[in-house]
Design a protein around this nucleic acid. Structure first.
Length: 222
DNA sequence: GCGACAG
DNA sequence: ATCTTGTCGC
């Protein structure tokens, strides 16, 4: 693969990302979570999509898609590695969500096209990037209290928020994916918090994509 | 040149 | 991401 060509594509596509709120439904009726895992030493990519009903936040649909892995992991180019499997799972989803949480960055990316933004553009759905670690940007130290937050800044602009979602846990890196603003992205993530570090949509998608025992026990087929 | 670096 | 049990701390 040609890294320079991919960079060019990112720059071009990033210009199409809508950073303002553009909801057709407010509040959303369905919020989905997306995550990707790997099998067979990385040869197979497994994408999971879970659909929750709002405001109950109950799981009402889940889909898993598997495809042959096409690209290695390269920091800054994660979306090219993950979106094919995510698209496959998306097509299987019977009820499309009004808002989608994607595991990874949104615009908090060197060229403003993290996987949440890239995938949001591809399926034209409002998305929010929820990452467990930082890719780029700087931020002031956070307080120890849950709810403590700091803006994530890069090249003079706010690209997201750093949020302490739970006591004694590392913070979350939240950024707009597509058709969502910085503040709205933070708002919906906080609204979906239920006592765990990760918001419900992401927590379920994470568990399903990573084949966590808790889900195997519930008899959910992967 | 050196360090950082989503999943 | 993934390989993997118990264990320390709140």
């Amino acid at each position: 693969m040609d890294i320079q060509a991919l960079k060019q594509e990112q720059t071009t596509r990033a210009a199409e990302v809508v950073r303002a709120d553009d909801f057709d439904v407010m509040p959303p009726r369905y919020i989905a979570g997306a995550d990707v895992g790997f099998e067979q030493g990385g040869e197979v990519t497994r994408a999971a999509l879970v659909l929750l009903e709002y405001p109950s936040l109950k799981l009402i649909e889940h889909r898993v898609a598997r495809i042959a892995t096409t690209m290695p992991y390269i920091p800054g180019f994660l979306s090219f590695r993950e979106y094919p499997a995510l698209l496959a799972a998306w097509e299987q989803l019977e009820q499309k969500p009004d808002l989608l949480f994607v595991d990874g960055q949104g615009i908090a990316h060197p060229r403003r096209l993290g996987v949440a933004s890239h995938f949001g553009l591809l399926v034209d759905v409002p998305t929010i990037g929820v990452a467990k670690r930082r890719l780029c940007g700087k931020f002031e130290p956070l307080g120890d209290e849950p709810g403590s937050r700091q803006p994530l800044i890069d090249k003079g602009e706010q690209i997201g928020w750093v949020l302490r979602s739970k006591k004694r846990c590392n913070p979350l890196f939240i950024s707009p994916g597509h058709r969502v603003s910085n503040d709205t992205a933070l708002h919906w993530v906080e609204t979906c918090l239920q006592g765990y570090r990760l918001p419900e949509p992401t927590r379920w998608a994470d568990a399903v994509a990573s084949n966590r025992p808790a889900f195997a026990r519930l008899g959910i087929p992967l």
